[in-house]
Design a protein around this nucleic acid. Structure first.
Length: 847
RNA sequence: GGGCGCUUAGCUCAGCUGGUUAGAGCGCAGCCUUCACACGGCUGAGGUCGUGGGUUCGAGUCCCGCAGCGCCCACCA
């Protein structure tokens, strides 16, 4: 900085927060303040695995909250001397983007089409969607998301994230696709990934398989129907599945059915003979204690079907309708015709009518409310259909792997620690391997082809894989090695795997993407395993777990040292904050209203892991704090004069020593808090010190420091002010980076954000001093103020006589600061008396 | 059904390993045009720390039960 040309401190006449964001953001970018040093070694680096925000729509305050907290951590570490590796990604891969692109451009993805390098959108949107190949579709996705990503980056810069903006990535970009496919191929080669034809949860609207992590329960009204299978009555909420029934099951110890095990009964309406079987998962106190097993009504059905080796009678198609033709063994009679081709709901109605008419339903359906599984974005309950899918082993079916993944998580430092329970709960609750294939278009394709037999039938057991050097590939438009495009779909040729990976299958390799795994060995060695994974609590089961899993499988290591789990933003509408009159609270509007530092102050007040209300009141306080920084710095620096402030050697006065002792405690406390990732505590401590510094210390010494007098007293005060100010500006820098940089620039070289973090050693031998002089002086000053206020007098009113009564020890402290007290309080005649407790008598002069 | 977190002044929240009269800010009331700051300063009034027990010389702070709120997990016939 060269704003000190005149030799005097560059303190502006009227300091202001206006425009600080633009000015300093561009200076930081220009100077490369936050650029990663590629020559850094692992021991010097602090690397952060930043969550890539979803690029659809706009960022909301919840994101701002978490990212700012992480930035405060990053800034602290940088000042402590770490070389920060702090990249930023954009999650533009997945269903939300896919849907936006479809409607925005009026296209649909048809993976069977070849890539058209000359594809151009028509000028006028047509009536029907234009079918495009998957590579063309991805190009459109990238085109649309590029704009959003720019807007996101601007917002992040505006709020002062100290990210290295030369290191950004997109989860749909070549680099991320390559990394994701490479990792998958390695999982495949080691047998950790496999494909299998199996019943899986299926969304009938999106027509894709869904993983356990993407499901959520919804409470729905339903009804118990009591149905008769010969003389045995069962209860079911899904009478439409009677045609899919393959057995009845009761608990092995249930005496009511003990003599029926091994025998058969007939299904109502269809008369299909099904066995009665024992299984430990049947619960005697549910319904009549005996359940109908269908292929497939719920997850338990799958377990029973698998463990009891039952036949398959699937009746629900992928579009959510009942099949036209009945499954094997089910007669194509009147009952079947009544449900064939119907939706699940229609079929249920028809079944209930028929069952009531035939007398095979006992009584009316009894309405209940029960939890039903949904895809988290879906509108209708998930069905279970059988299809070929890709899986990655995650411990869901393997006790040993599960145990090792639980152990891995103990190698990670969780902040706060109790969040780890969510991980443990999740891993312990896994009921199957991770289903990673999706029957969608926009995403990372599986780098897999299948050879076709003489009849054109695909051989799923001998997939063709590309050389890693070819990645990324799209098997719907690229041909496997040894084949030509002409052989696609021909007998003896090949066919590409049509599916794409689950979005988490790519997100789970963010450490490998950013650290340059297999592409930049030096970078990888310097940054991986990473130091910090910050993220939200709701994605512990997805992002955190999946990332840990893949690092475990590939590198046999936990991917980070620490994880910080941020809290949740409480919607102010749910609280009774008045409904804003049509004003949508976007991050930018709040940033413009209060300033970035103020919004950051609010975010940094949220304790790690603690839910926090969106509270503009807190932002106001942050703004006030930032303004106070400007004014206090201006005051302290503006009077330091032409020459540089005196140094530590000049500090003699007891009051000054006391302040530095207090400062040492602050530095110690704030540093310890930061080390424990408790940025909020560090901020609280710093803020508390700062206000009493302004209100008491500065008031007490202003006459001595800047008055007519000079000499040792003045030197001591000026030295103390300079030392404290320098430390405070740095202590605030992680939280209020703009105003801190501004005030720092008035008198220091370089950026405050690369300045060394304050240390106790900076206050020298005063660190251990007793700070009581300051406390006593502040108390006496406060007492005088109280009297002036009570008498409705100005703070400038003179005090004719000030009498301080106190025990001897305290009087010594008073004496040590008497000059400052007299000046600050405006005292003409000062008297001390020895007494029991500290008391102050004030005699004001007449007006 | 299991688990985690929260419950402290009207509001938003601090209170670390238990220790003298429980803290901050906002809001509220009053005062001060003060020479860094009216986008301000000073002063003040507000709390039986959700509830019932227990441990202890002493509990907001530890233990047990209960309730309310929020979240996570669960094979939900």
């Amino acid at each position: 900085m060269s704003n000190t040309q005149t030799g005097s401190p560059g303190v502006p006449e009227k300091p202001s927060l206006d425009g600080l964001e633009e000015r300093w953001a561009s200076t930081w970018e220009h100077d490369g303040t936050y650029r990663f040093d590629p020559s850094a070694t692992r021991a010097e680096v602090f690397s952060i695995d930043t969550p890539p925000p979803t690029v659809s729509g706009s960022l909301h305050m919840g994101s701002v909250f978490g990212y700012v907290q992480t930035d405060a951590i990053a800034r602290y570490r940088r000042m402590r001397g770490w070389k920060l590796f702090y990249p930023m990604g954009w999650d533009d891969n997945g269903l939300p983007t896919e849907r936006r692109v479809q409607t925005y451009f009026g296209v649909t993805c048809d993976p069977s089409l070849p890539y058209d390098p000359d594809f151009a959108l028509p000028n006028e949107p047509g009536k029907d969607d234009i079918p495009v190949s998957r590579p063309n579709f991805i190009e459109l996705c990238e085109r649309l998301t590029a704009e959003d990503e720019q807007a996101f980056e601007e917002l992040w810069r505006h709020i002062g994230l100290s990210v290295d903006w030369q290191r950004t990535y997109a989860t749909i970009g070549d680099h991320a696709r390559r990394t994701s496919q490479r990792m998958f191929l390695r999982n495949l080669a080691r047998g950790e990934a496999y494909s299998s034809e199996a019943p899986t949860m299926w969304d009938v609207d999106y027509q894709t398989a869904v993983a356990q992590a993407e499901m959520e329960d919804k409470e729905l009204p339903g009804a118990y129907h009591r149905l008769r299978f010969d003389d045995i009555e069962i209860e079911t909420t899904r009478p439409e599945l009677v045609a899919a029934c393959v057995a009845l099951v009761a608990h092995p110890d249930d005496e009511r059915y003990a003599d029926r095990f091994g025998m058969t009964v007939h299904t109502p309406l269809f008369g299909v003979e099904v066995p009665v079987l024992p299984h430990r998962l049947a619960e005697p106190d549910k319904g009549t204690g005996i359940a109908m097993i269908c292929t497939f009504g719920d997850v338990t059905d799958i377990i029973w079907w698998r463990e009891l080796n039952l036949p398959t009678r699937s009746i629900i198609l992928r579009n959510g309708r009942i099949a036209e033709t009945p499954p094997p063994g089910v007669p194509d009679g009147e009952a079947w015709r009544a449900i064939a081709g119907r939706t699940v709901k229609q079929a249920q109605r028809a079944m209930v009518e028929m069952l009531a008419a035939s007398g095979e339903m006992d009584g009316d359906p009894r309405p209940i409310t029960h939890a039903v599984k949904f895809y988290e974005r879906g509108d209708r309950p998930l069905e279970i259909v059988t299809s070929r899918q890709w899986f990655i082993r995650n411990g869901g079916r393997d006790e040993d792997l599960r145990r090792r993944l639980l152990e891995r998580a103990t190698e990670l430092d969780w902040h706060p620690t109790y969040m780890k329970v969510r991980y443990d709960d999740w891993v312990n609750g896994l009921n199957g391997d991770w289903l990673v294939s999706r029957q969608r278009f926009f995403g990372v394709p599986f780098p897999i082809w299948y050879p076709l037999g003489p009849e054109g039938e695909p051989d799923h057991d001998s997939p063709l894989v590309p050389d890693e050097g070819r990645l990324p590939v799209d098997p719907t438009t690229d041909a496997p090695e040894g084949y030509t495009e002409e052989q696609r779909g021909k007998p003896g040729g090949f066919v590409g795997d049509p599916d794409v990976m689950d979005t988490w299958a790519t997100s789970s390799v963010t450490p490998q993407i950013v650290c340059g795994w297999k592409e930049d060995p030096d970078l990888f060695a310097a940054t991986f395993p990473m130091d910090l994974r910050p993220q939200g609590p709701e994605i512990i089961r997805t992002w955190l777990f999946a990332t840990l899993l893949r690092s475990h499988l590939e590198h046999d290591v936990v991917p980070w040292k620490h994880t910080t789990i941020n809290g949740w933003i409480l919607d102010p509408d749910r609280k009774k904050m008045s409904k804003s009159k049509g004003n949508v609270v976007t991050p930018m509007s709040l940033l413009e209203e209060f300033g970035s530092d103020a919004v950051r102050y609010w975010a940094c007040n949220g304790r790690p892991g603690t839910d926090t209300a969106l509270d503009t009141g807190v932002m106001k306080i942050g703004r006030r704090l930032a303004i106070k920084m400007l004014n206090a710095s201006k005051f302290a620096l503006g009077r330091l004069g032409e020459e540089a402030a005196p140094g530590l050697d000049a500090v003699h006065d007891a009051l000054d020593v006391a302040l530095l002792a207090e400062l040492a405690k602050l530095v110690e406390g704030a540093t310890a808090a930061h080390e424990g990732f408790d940025y909020a505590r560090a901020l609280e401590l710093t803020e508390g010190f700062f206000w009493s510094f302004c209100d008491d210390y500065v008031e007490l010494v202003k006459t001595r420091a800047y008055g007519e007098g000079s000499g040792e007293g003045a030197e001591s005060a000026r030295a103390t002010l300079a030392i404290a100010l320098s430390a405070l500006q740095r202590l605030f820098a992680p939280f209020l980076p703009f105003v801190a940089e501004e005030v720092w620039s008035w008198w220091q070289e370089g950026s405050v954000h690369t300045a060394p973090w304050p240390t106790v050693a900076e206050v020298g031998p005063h660190a251990g001093a007793e700070p009581t002089v300051l406390d006593v002086a502040a108390e006496v000053l406060g007492a005088v103020r109280r009297v002036k206020t009570e008498h409705k007098r100005s703070m400038r009113a003179r005090v004719a006589t000030l009498t301080v009564t106190a025990p001897r020890a305290i009087l010594l402290d008073v004496d040590a600061a008497v000059g400052d007290i007299v000046d600050a309080a405006g005292v003409d005649n000062f008297v001390t008396e020895e007494g029991e407790a500290l008391s102050v008598a004030v005699e004001l002069e007449e007006d």
